[in-house]
Design a binder for these strands. Structure first.
Lengths: 207, 207
DNA sequence: GTTTAAATTAAACGACCGTTTAATTTCGTT
DNA sequence: AACGAAATTAAACGGTCGTTTAATTTAAAC
């Protein structure tokens, strides 16, 4: 499914509004007004509001873990270095696509019902497989400890990153970063989050 | 504000539905039908849908950190033991009030706007103060390392716990806990989460 | 038993919702 | 210039929304 310029415009506006006000909290009229198109264009291009949401997920998910296999196959790095690259790229991804990941959290709260729920379940299983493989590699090399709860590891990575993203205002206030520009804050946070996750993952993976 | 039996009935039904389908995704008609009362009763008792949400927060928040001061003041335990008790009781709380904490996550996504946003900000600041105090106590005793990002610590505790709660289905599948009863699963998870947070917090607090 | 305030009800209100229709415009192809 | 498919539009559709109204029932106080 290739999208023209106007379709992408609608998609991105809808993504932002769904992230801020939720699916039910956003009206087609709002989306079309903000995107500068007629109300009927949404149905015309996407069929329905539900299908619009699905289109957002297809638009984002298909480019999600691009290039991961290359990292995993790299024999010049050990499992721990690969792991650091992996969660580093995860941090970049969610920082780059904040709106989408807010929608993901909302969809998580709805459970795994609907076609979007199935998509997310697939992605999660794929990510679990990747991380599991990497952990096994590290264990076989005698680098990581023998018993590691990979699911809890993902939950930790995703949970901490999401929560930090949601509580931006609070974290800025508490950490005296209120006067930073958004760009500078994002950069600073990526660094802090990366160091933090590295600390946490060390305690999970090593003896 | 003291609530009669019927008001509490409405509150609890609304809490469940808001958690599952969100604020905008839940109608007054649904709430009143499920609670077995007339539609007009919600406006009659609470004024409006918004005020109903506020009432839910007052209902839950007021009993939130009950008994914490006693733990902190206990001189027979060191800071690390108190810390373990503290996040242990946090785990109990969110497990006990799952629905409410799903609403909290939804409200987080809306930012800190509105009267509910202010309430949550207050609670967060209070919790931050409590944890900060405890960390300082541990540092002065030479137990914890001198530089600790308390905000990141809270984010870790809350983020991991929430994420694990949201991904119950996924975690059950991946960890082969699908056939457990809800009760047994909850118990097992509280144990795993407690151990996990202990591991993580050790890496944050100790050298 | 009468009074009075609280509780409860069915019905109606106007507003907004997602979607469809049918007419019109746009624009590349012939 | 004429055609036809795609794009765009204003208007209307039936339905649901949160809230209010006005009438009725309930139940406690006197």
């Amino acid at each position: 499914m290739d999208l023209n310029e106007k379709q992408i415009q609608i998609l991105q506006v809808a993504e932002k509004l769904f992230a801020h006000h939720g699916f039910e909290g956003t009206s087609i009229r709002e989306i079309s007004r903000e995107a500068g198109v007629n109300i009927a264009m949404v149905s015309y291009y996407f069929g329905s509001k539900e299908k619009l949401m699905e289109a957002i997920f297809h638009y984002r998910v298909n480019t999600a873990w691009f290039g991961v296999q290359e990292i995993l196959g790299d024999t010049s790095r050990d499992a721990w270095e690969k792991m650091k690259i992996l969660f580093g790229s995860f941090i970049e991804k969610i920082n780059e696509k904040k709106y989408f990941h807010q929608i993901v959290v909302r969809q998580q709260l709805l459970g795994e019902a609907g076609p979007v729920g199935e998509m997310m379940d697939e992605v999660r299983c794929r990510n679990f497989g990747i991380l599991e493989q990497l952990v096994k590699e590290g264990q076989q090399a005698g680098l990581f400890k023998p018993e590691v709860d990979v699911a809890l590891m993902i939950v930790t990575m995703v949970g901490v990153s999401y929560q930090l993203m949601h509580l931006e205002h609070f974290y800025r206030k508490i950490s005296h970063l209120e006067n930073m520009t958004q760009e500078a804050y994002d950069t600073e946070l990526r660094i802090r989050l990366k160091n933090h996750l590295e600390t946490l993952f060390k305690s999970i993976l090593f003896k």
